Amino acid sequence: MRILMAPDKFAGTLTAVEAAQAMAEGWSRTAPDAEVVTAPMADGGPGFVDVLHASVGGQILAVTVRGPIGVPVPATLLVAGETAYIESAQACGLALLPTEDDGRTPLPGVSSRASTYGVGELISAAIDAGATRVVVGLGGSGTNDGGAGLLAALGATSEPAGVLAGGPERLADVRSVNLDAARARLAGVELVAASDVDNPLLGLRGATNVFGEQKGIVGDEAKLAADAALTAFADVAGRDVANWKGAGAAGGLGYALLLLGGRREPGFTTVAQAVELPDLVAASDVIVTGEGKLDWQSMDGKVPVGVAELAGAAMRPCIVLAGVVEVGNRELRANGIEAAYSLVDVVGEEEAFARPAQSLAALAERVAKTWSRR
Rank of each mutant, 00 (worst) to 15 (best):
Q90H: 08
M1A: 13
G348E: 13
T270Q: 14
I69G: 00
A339W: 14
A54L: 07
G188E: 07
L97S: 14
A6S: 09
G216N: 08
G206A: 07
A247S: 14
L151T: 00
G251D: 07
A129V: 05
Q273L: 12
G188F: 06
G118R: 07
E331R: 11
N144C: 13
A91I: 08
G292F: 01
A226P: 02
A226T: 07
A368L: 05
Y85C: 10
D300N: 12
G167M: 12
F233Q: 02
V281H: 11
R133S: 11
M1N: 12
V135M: 09
L258H: 07
A283K: 06
D300R: 14
P7I: 02
G248S: 10
L259V: 15
E331T: 09
Y117I: 08
G137C: 02
A226R: 05
E365Y: 04
L363E: 14
V65L: 05
I217K: 05
G149I: 07
R175N: 12
S298R: 04
A274F: 04
T269A: 15
E265S: 13
T132A: 10
G262A: 11
L202A: 09
D145W: 09
V236G: 04
R374S: 03
E121K: 04
A274H: 00
A368P: 03
P7S: 09
V56H: 04
T83G: 01
G58W: 01
G261C: 08
G267K: 02
V17W: 04
R66H: 10
R263I: 09
V324E: 15
P317Y: 05
A242K: 06
A19F: 06
L138V: 11
Y117L: 06
S176M: 05
R133F: 03
M5H: 00
A249M: 10
E169L: 01
L52F: 10
